[in-house]
């Protein structure tokens, strides 16, 4: 775990939420925390440069924005030497948001995972079929979420241990 000062944790806790919807959001955060606007801006940039966060920006509600369906494509690539090349090829599709290699098990023969987005489940299936044909991975499946039990963003800084 990285070392953070008390002020840095307070700033991170603000950044993991949503910016105040005002014209000077960093000034408003600074006032609330008893810091200066310059400090908050400098720290926000510093955290980005240190790769504490991946992105600083707007997150959309995809359903409202017209991206209604997504499916988890799972791909069986038994030969380890092929996984880098095929993983990159699957990741290259614009409809794919996330692509990873993960461990397989005797009852789980899949090695590559891709989140595929489309306007409907059918479209997601069609995209996966096209990927399978073009990339050349015949053994695959697409898992859809039938029910959402929880969807939240991690509140890391609510649990951050402080020494002083």
């Amino acid at each position: 775990m990285i070392d953070l000062t008390r002020d840095e944790v307070k700033i991170c806790a603000k950044l993991q939420g949503s910016l105040p919807m005002t014209k000077r959001p960093f000034k408003d955060i600074a006032e609330e925390l008893g810091l200066t606007e310059e400090e908050v801006i400098a720290k926000t940039k510093e955290f980005g440069e240190k790769k504490y966060y991946r992105r600083f920006g707007a997150t959309l509600r995809h359903q409202k924005a017209g991206f209604t369906a997504n499916g988890m494509g799972i791909w069986c690539v038994p030969n380890e030497a092929d996984r880098q090349r095929l993983g990159e090829a699957l990741a290259a599709y614009s409809e794919v948001s996330h692509a990873y290699e993960r461990p397989s098990f005797e009852d789980w023969p899949y090695h590559l995972f891709t989140m595929i987005h489309g306007e409907s489940d059918d479209e997601v299936r069609q995209i996966a079929k096209r990927m399978s044909d073009e990339v050349g991975v015949a053994d695959y499946d697409v898992l859809f979420s039938i029910r959402e039990f929880k969807k939240s963003s991690m509140q890391y800084f609510d649990y951050w241990p402080l020494d002083d």
Partner: peptide
């Protein structure tokens, strides 16, 4: 349309 504007911590 926008859920939030903030940092996506890694």
């Amino acid at each position: 349309i926008i859920r939030r504007i903030g940092a996506s911590f890694d």
